[in-house]
Design a protein around this nucleic acid. Structure first.
Lengths: 236, 236
DNA sequence: ATACGATTCAAACGAGCGTTTGAATCGACC
DNA sequence: GGTCGATTCAAACGCTCGTTTGAATCGTAT
């Protein structure tokens, strides 16, 4: 269907004009971030990208496939880097357990690197990803499950060794909580206008540095026991 | 525009047939949960509710207003109950500080009560709410900000007294993380298919009982300092 | 030069959308 | 029993959507 880098004749040949597929992906990343998947039309998308309306269906086949391409372009390398970082930690540590902090940092650092690259919209992508987590569309849910399965399983095993006081089930829930806080934070929707005195969101690094101690403490917390159950129910 | 409970003549007068406005709200709650706001059409919504297509615009004015009505019907009472619970805690404690656990429980318990009421879709609503947190539509964001402002500010002051080692800015971020984990968990999107060995989602109570110790530990964690900053950046 | 596959383009397709309209129908009241 | 406001109803409005089509145009190899 597509191979060489030809075509593109209508628009002025800027120095900042990559091929059509990339222009579509860049515009889609930006607009999906601003308005979400359903609320972004292919007409405004192709207009923003400076390409013809039919280009999306020619190069990607459908709007759904385009959205998956937007996600996989950055998500797959990020998760591969996460797995590689964890592998390096494990190799350096021999058969000794790794600390909880270092495992979590290995998860956060690739996301931080993505948030840093200003030239190509890493921050835009993280917002799109944060919203995709909460999107009910089945094709999005299945896609994310497949993309995350390997990375999550590798990290779950590592955390299990680092947090021996947690059962596998307990850890599953805590990783769920970690992913929730992380995606909500990276998406940065400012839902509750909490940024009254906080600097603008251009400082993802400081944000993750605040998130890390919070998550580490939560992961290290004692496991649930029956005494605590009664506290919650009848505590008030 | 609307006042008495008259009308309704087309459908059989079941015992389970409240007035048109309520039937619309119930169907909307369910469908907004399943497909999201944008992907739910008024045609499928009114068909599911067993009412005429024009009823939504007659009773609510527009689809936007209907969505806000779906949210406010349950969110406003829940946040009022949260404020009342915190007020009761503060009255009982006199001028002594309240523990972090009790403040957090006062936030969680109204949500838990909503998740429990099976007859009228409390769980459905919590999923809708979790997704609304991540929705980019401006009218949703403004609505949620207004609905949450009072509750969040009251709790922030309470947490500030319970956690004196945290600056106001640090606490703002931590409450952001708490809301992230909470909304993600309540929305229960199972994004990462983590429920491999976990019981089905009908047990919100056990879920919140696992979430509480995680969040308490995160809130109580030491504040960020410069030593930790260096760890994160050059730690790997 | 010519032929060819890849790509771009303007235009249209059918479907579905939120909303509006105006008549029909209801319960309530004089 | 007739009037009135509230509600329901079927039908249509204008519009936008994702997708398809077929011709025009490109770079490239013959």
């Amino acid at each position: 269907m597509a191979a060489s880098r030809t075509g593109r004749r209508g628009l002025p040949p800027d120095a900042t004009s990559p091929d059509t597929k990339t222009r579509i992906l860049d515009a889609a990343e930006l607009l999906f971030m601003e308005h979400g998947y359903e609320a972004t039309s292919l007409r405004q998308l192709t207009a923003a990208a400076g390409v013809n309306l039919a280009s999306v269906n020619y190069h990607f086949g459908s709007k759904d496939v385009l959205f998956q391409a937007v996600l996989t372009r950055r998500l797959d390398p990020m998760n591969q880097e996460r797995i590689a970082l964890l592998g390096k930690l494990e190799r350096d540590a021999g058969d000794k357990p790794i600390t909880c902090e270092r495992i979590l940092f290995a998860m956060l650092i690739p996301a931080l690197k993505l948030a840093r690259d200003e030239k190509r919209g890493g921050k835009h992508f993280l917002k799109v990803l944060g919203r995709a987590y909460a999107d009910p569309a089945p094709f999005i849910r299945h896609f994310l499950s497949a993309q995350y399965a390997e990375m999550i399983n590798r990290y779950k095993e590592a955390f299990l060794r680092a947090l021996p006081h947690l059962s596998r089930q307990e850890l599953t829930w805590r990783l769920h909580f970690v992913m929730g806080a992380l995606s909500y934070t990276l998406a940065g929707t400012d839902a509750l206008k909490m940024l009254s005195q906080v600097a603008s969101t251009d400082n993802e690094e400081l944000m993750l540095q605040r998130l890390a101690p919070f998550l580490v403490a939560g992961l290290k917390a004692p496991a649930l026991n029956d005494t605590r159950k009664l506290e919650l129910v009848s505590g008030l």
